[in-house]
Structure formats: structure tokens, C-alpha cells
Amino acid sequence: MSSQNNPTNGFNGEDSPLIQTKNLYKSYFNEGLETKVLFDINLTINKGEFVAIMGPSGSGKSTLMHILGFLDNHTEGEYEFHGKAARTMDEDMLAKVRATRVSFVFQAFNLLPRASIYQNVMLPLIYHPIIPAEERDSRVNKAIESVDLTDRTNFLSNQLSGGQKQRVAIARALVTEPELIFADEPTGNLDSASGIQVMKVLQDLHDSGHTIILVTHEQSTAEHADRIIELFDGRITRDTEEFKTRWAVDEDKLMK
């Protein structure tokens, strides 16, 4: 990873863990009604890990990811990123972290429907404070190539299949080469062949030094990771180191 994507200003250097939560709670409030979703989450994730979060539907996986990815606020406890508490970050700081440090592959893709693949993948670069404008084009093309969509670069995103959208979302997430990539059910909408392709991209990213946190409820997908965290009713019920038992590269070859 190039150093320009790792501005350390504002963070306690690289000694602190990448992600650390202490007694983290999350509640949603709708019209005065409190829905408690996460309870007492204590979690440490270091740089370079490939973590799979598992658990039944409604257990709080997406909610946890959104908090860790600076897309949502937690209610109680502490969330530290490189040792810096999230609640001490102001709007501009948060925007900068979102632009440079983390990226997200959403469960629902969230592409701009009337924009082309190229424009969708370009989007994060527009808000990136460091990457120079003249690097954008080559980065976009490289990202699109890494998800195998070069021949569809100028397609509108609403002209794509679910699997293709998912890959565009991944290309968009990796175009800024952030140190931390979140993927919420990246294979959930895909057939197994496309799913394996997506996992291959994520594993490649991991191999090149990126930290990956993914949500899945499929054991087979989780087995691509080297750590599995299980959530049940908003609590961590399991957190184990695993040796990867699946290698998407090989699976991909097998499929062909």
C-alpha cells in the first residue's frame, strides 16, 4: 500500500490495534421506542486480519459493521480506530476517515443507478483528499479490471446483473486502496460461481495487505477468512482463529 493513503495525523500511530471496541452498545430509537441491538461488544481487530462475522438474521451483524465503518454512531461504550475514539471525531474528520481509511461493500450494493460503472467506481476518488486527479483514470480502470468488468466499463449500473453490481461495488470499495474493507454479505445475492469470484477478489486484497471484515451467514463463505466472530441476539457468542480451509483461487480453477 502506498504511503499517501496512510496519513497518520490524528491517530496514535500504528502501535494501537486497528479496531478496538470496549463495552460497546447500540440502540435504535424510533419515535421514542428503544430497540437494543448490540450488547457489550468487546472486540479487537488488528491490521491484516481477514474476519468473518456470522450469525442469524437480525443478530446485529450489519449494525456492527456500520458502526465500525463510521457509517453509524454507537450508543454507549467506546470504539477506537488506531487508538482514536470515534466519538471524538468531528464531521470533517469522519468524512476524511471514510474517504481514505475504510470502504464498504453494501448488502444492497448502493450504486448510483443512472451512472455508468466507470462513474460509480470513480466516485470515491472525487472525495479523496490525497489521490491526485491525474491518477484517477488509471486507478478506476485497474479496479474495474480486478473485478473482471473491463468490457462493461460504460454500462449503466441498472443494466447489470446482481453479481455484476456486487463486483462494481467491490471495485468502488478498493479503488482508493483503503487499509480496511468491509463487505456485508458480498456473496449473499450470488450463485456459487460468482460468489467464488467475489471471494477471490477479497482474498487477493487480503493477500496484498488489506484488512477485510466481511459479514456472511454461509459457513462456506466464512471459511475463506482466518477468524470467525459469531453474533447472536446482539452479543458475541464465538470468536475463533481459523486456518483458512478454503482458497477461492483453487475453487475458481475447479469451477472452470
Binding site: D92, A99, F104, N110, P113, Y127
Partner: peptide
């Protein structure tokens, strides 16, 4: 509705409020 989602996305990938 569409706008709000788009704004959410843009914020998620690092847009500042003034952008």
C-alpha cells in the same frame, strides 16, 4: 428519496457536507 440515498452513499465514501 433517491437523493437522500445518493447523499448517504456519497457521505459513506467520504463526501463532506459542504461537498
Amino acid at each position: 428519496t433517491e437523493r437522500t440515498r445518493e447523499i448517504g452513499l456519497r457521505k459513506a465514501i467520504g463526501a463532506k457536507r459542504k461537498d
